[in-house]
């Protein structure tokens, strides 16, 4: 069975303007819209396209976190994932813990490819894919904008600071997605109904043998410094004069 495992993180929707709680203990996320991390939607879309081309038989969506994650897993099933795995875990989850949990799933499911997002847009850590690849002792191809599977290997084009880099990696491997890899499909209503019948299994983090250790204490959350509101200029001449005066031109 050729399987692709995809990470699905539940995050505050990217359109929500988040606020820091006045006591600095966190960000206020009660009642705000939650979604699949955008990069994970791209990961799932890529896996589905590979399966649709015949490059894989099964797409597995996995999420680590509290029971609410099942909402995002259901959405992933509605998008087209075949099965979902929920690793139940509460409290702060550091990337290393998530990577260890994903490694346990990888050992059970033996995927040919794991596709994660390049970063979660809540914590902006950008670590989990590389951590998993390190723990698994397998190749990583991060920031993918193109992914081509061959027999036993993959060719991945990566968005790097200099431009585009192409790597060849042996399979199995971990790939993380960048924005240009694809445009995720919309979920259709009948698929939401069908998704209710697809298998979604829950496992316990500690039952998997992963300790939820927290190595970084979250001391304080603060709002960022605000920029001073500037001035309006009436035309190009006034703008250029103002910039020259400040020594910027």
């Amino acid at each position: 069975m050729k399987r692709i495992l995809v990470g699905i993180k539940r995050v505050v929707d990217y359109n929500v303007r988040i606020r820091v709680k006045p006591d600095g203990s966190g960000v206020a996320i009660d009642g705000v819209k939650m979604s699949i991390n955008p990069f994970d939607e791209i990961a799932l879309e890529e896996a589905l396209r590979i399966r649709e081309r015949g490059g894989a038989d099964e797409v597995l969506a996995a999420s680590v976190g509290p029971a609410d994650c099942q909402q995002q897993l259901r959405t992933a099933l509605a998008m087209g994932a075949d099965r979902a795995l929920h690793v139940q875990a509460d409290g702060v989850l550091e990337p290393l813990v998530v990577a260890r949990a994903l490694l346990k799933l990888v050992e059970r499911e033996q995927p040919l490819l794991v596709i994660l997002g390049k970063q979660a847009i809540d914590d902006d850590n950008g670590q989990t894919g590389q951590l998993l690849a390190a723990l698994w002792n397998r190749p990583q191809a991060t920031y993918a904008s193109k992914l081509e599977l061959a027999d036993g290997s993959a060719r991945v084009t990566r968005e790097v600071d200099a431009g585009l880099e192409t790597l060849e990696v042996d399979l199995p491997a971990v790939v993380t997605t960048d924005l240009r890899l694809n445009e995720p499909r919309y979920v259709k209503l009948p698929d939401i109904m069908k998704a209710k019948k697809k298998p979604l299994d829950t496992l316990g983090l500690e039952a998997l043998g992963v300790s939820p250790r927290q190595q970084l204490r979250l001391v304080r959350f603060e709002p960022p410094p605000q920029r001073q509101k500037g001035i309006r200029v009436k035309d190009a001449a006034e703008l250029v004069a103002a910039l020259k005066k400040k020594g910027l031109l």
């Binding site: 303007r17 988040i18 820091v20 960000v27 190595q215 970084l216 204490r217 979250l218 001391v219 304080r220 959350f221 603060e222 709002p223 960022p224």
Partner: peptide, 8 residues
């Protein structure tokens, strides 16, 4: 949108 202080 938020600045986080973390401690080892």
């Amino acid at each position: 949108n938020a600045i986080l202080t973390v401690e080892l």
